[in-house]
Design a protein around this nucleic acid. Structure first.
Lengths: 218, 218
DNA sequence: CGAGTATTTATACGCTTGCATAATTAGAGC
DNA sequence: GCTCTAATTATGCAAGCGTATAAATACTCG
């Protein structure tokens, strides 16, 4: 029984961009906290301080909202990693090192991000569109990495043949991804910065160059 | 209106173990094909050729079934990798190599497994019980790996201090996980065995030993 | 072969979900 | 300040969900 008829919710009209961003942010909150299953239209609307119907006004279907949210996560991580490069020194080896450190530290290496990422990855197998979106993101990341590797090798006066840099990019990408995973899942069992150090040491071994000094190999 | 009253489904009584296995297998099919969301009690029951009610007879709640399924996946991968060791030669370096190859080839490196794994990992953040289950699995895997590394180092007449082997285990675990991920997500853009080769080469570099020959380093 | 029981089916309930659509209202433009 | 429209709320629906529970049945043991 509803006493004194609830007054209709007051609202403000927001710009289209702002609303979309808010809805995506609310979606990510839901996914991170309670998994993909927790991201219901009603819960998302609640967090965005909006009624459920509005979601459909901006995203024809829930799946499209989810897809947009996934792209947002990937973009954010990519941007954060690239930002680290902007503020880095200009020695290629230092840049590669900074890139790795950025990916293996806050805010990228975070359980929150892993939850989001895993939830979406689980859909990749079932949804071809999302599969493509993911592959694009992966290849873009690896290409950026490969360029960094190439320059680092050249700076250390080592050959940088395409064959080799591709292989190195695959391996080093794996190191970064793998350590990122470990850190997200069980960050508390590692000392601060341990994973970044481990990653850099491993990468130095793979490339057979030092990323610290300005000298040559070893 | 239901014409000529459907005859009641005939059934056989199965052993408790068999039924549990069947239900878990059906669950995994669902998760792999349509994601965790696709694993509804009704769909699972359908695949197991059983009615939905029976699930509750063996698993008090759906979450318990999901948890059991997760453990089954991890166990299966662990067992498959260990099996590869049983059939391997007895030179420690060859054994480590075989272990890596097993993890980076069929049937472990498979989109099906990734879908399962990712779907579950997404829950880790929200469900402490599953988080613990995962951590146990991870540490067990890493310990097994660390033991292999230790013996490989000793066989190559290299020191194998705990500090170092731990670090190496972390790094090499990352290499395996990362390449496994890459392969599951985009196996078709790699040549056959390329990822396994890449992994072994990277591991050789990290440990500074050869995993092929019987000689010493390099 | 007959009785008893553990296993399985069948049915139903209460909730939540995504989506549709009608009613309302904030804010821009004249 | 009025009007018009696009943005937003409110309400409802049909489907699917997990779970509970009663009825039926296959198998075991004597």
């Amino acid at each position: 029984m509803k006493l004194q008829g609830a007054p209709r919710k007051s609202f403000r009209r927001e710009g289209e961009d702002k609303r979309r961003e808010d809805l995506i942010a609310a979606t990510l909150e839901c996914v991170a906290e309670r998994g993909l299953a927790g991201a219901t239209v009603r819960e998302i609307a609640l967090r965005a301080d909006v009624t459920a119907g509005l979601i459909r006004y901006y995203f024809p279907t829930k799946d499209e909202l989810i897809g947009a949210a996934y792209r947002a996560v990937m973009d954010r991580m990519t941007v954060q990693a690239s930002d680290a490069l902007k503020n880095a020194e200009n020695d290629p080896r230092a840049r590669l090192s900074a890139f790795v450190k950025a990916n293996l530290g806050q805010p990228i290496m975070d359980p929150y991000n892993l939850s989001l990422w895993a939830g979406f990855i689980a859909l990749v197998h079932a949804d071809p569109a999302m599969a493509m979106a993911h592959r694009d993101g992966y290849l873009a990341f690896r290409d950026e990495l490969e360029a960094l590797i190439r320059e680092a090798l050249l700076a250390a006066e080592k050959p940088a043949l395409p064959n080799h840099t591709r292989r190195h990019a695959i391996a080093i990408n794996a190191i970064i991804d793998g350590l990122w995973l470990e850190g997200c899942l069980a960050g508390d069992i590692f000392a601060d910065g341990e994973l970044a150090d481990t990653g850099i040491t491993a990468i130095e071994a793979v490339l057979d160059i030092s990323l610290k000094a300005e000298g040559g190999a070893t």
